[in-house]
Amino acid sequence: MNTYRIVNGLGFVCFGVVAIALAGCAVDAADEDALVDDVVDEDVADAEQAMGVECAGAAATASFVGGINYTSPQSYNTTNCYKGVVLDVQGYSSLYAQNPSGSVFPGRTTVDWADSLPALADPDHVAKCESTYVAADLFEKVGSSWVYKTSKESLGVWTPFFDGGFCAGPGVSFSSEMQAGKTYRISATARTHKSSSAATRKLHVESREPVKAPR
């Protein structure tokens, strides 16, 4: 009788262990599915956030010759270039593609935040400032195709100053990456934070001559 009970007990225990193991497998499988879903969601969000190579297939928001000078509206979105503006420049000028000796800044094309920024009196001004975001992708025209060259991104910086401080908005620039006589495309975005769901903000793109050091 005791043996019977022990065997039944062992059988019950074994069944319980198997059930627990199966339940554990089910939980693990569910966790793995959730993890895969999270990874897919993150990949999609990252792809939307960074704009990326898909902007090569977008229609230009504006086109220029020699250099760029463009200020966006606050809200924008371009087909094939999520929450971005697309700017083409033909025959990039040597004025912006040089870095003479003694220059403080080389010739370059800058992409800068051009909207309002958090002030000292604003709640959470430091966090809001340091969340402001600018990103840009650079393409070069080779034959009839746009060839991706590089991407840059930047966040705002809160700068303490005596009893207060100010927000230095984000910005990036392309200098040695752009050569005279060539045709380029810059896709760019400015957002309240680095996320695909963030609202767009005004940005300014400008080709600039080198800045010489004062004598």
Rank of each mutant, 00 (worst) to 15 (best):
L35H: 13
L95V: 08
P210F: 05
A56I: 03
A19E: 08
A62P: 01
K149P: 05
H193D: 12
M178V: 12
L95I: 07
Q74L: 04
V36E: 12
V65T: 15
Q179E: 15
S195M: 07
D41S: 06
V17R: 09
P160W: 06
W158G: 01
S103I: 06
G164E: 02
A21P: 14
A180K: 00
A45T: 04
S207G: 13
K152W: 04
D112C: 08
G169A: 07
T150Q: 14
G84R: 00
Y82I: 06
G171R: 01
A21L: 15
F105D: 08
S154N: 10
Y184S: 02
A135H: 02
L10Y: 14
K202E: 08
L120R: 09
R108Q: 15
I20R: 07
E32L: 14
C55T: 07
L117G: 04
S103G: 06
E130M: 08
E209I: 14
L155G: 00
N77D: 14
Q74W: 02
F166W: 10
V126I: 15
V44L: 11
S93M: 05
G91I: 05
R108H: 11
R108I: 05
F12W: 15
S195E: 03
V18P: 04
M1Y: 10
A59L: 15
K194P: 00
A119Q: 11
S173A: 14
V134A: 04
A121S: 14
T3Y: 15
F139M: 09
G102T: 06
V17D: 02
Q49V: 11
H193Y: 14
R215K: 13
V44Q: 05
V7E: 15
A97Y: 01
G67H: 00
V53R: 08
G16R: 10
P123E: 05
F139G: 00
V40A: 09
D33A: 15
T189V: 06
A29K: 12
G9W: 11
T159L: 11
Y92L: 03
L10H: 13
F166Q: 03
S173V: 08
Y76H: 01
R191S: 01
Y4W: 13
A136I: 05
R208Q: 15
A34N: 14
K128S: 11
V126S: 08
D122L: 11
A190T: 01
F174G: 06
Q179R: 13
P73L: 03
K141P: 00
E177V: 10
S207C: 11
A29R: 12
P170L: 04
P210N: 03
D163M: 12
R201N: 09
G52Q: 08
A19T: 15
S144G: 10
V134K: 02
V13S: 15
N99V: 02
G165F: 02
D28M: 10
S173W: 13
A190F: 04
A213G: 01
V104N: 09
S196G: 00
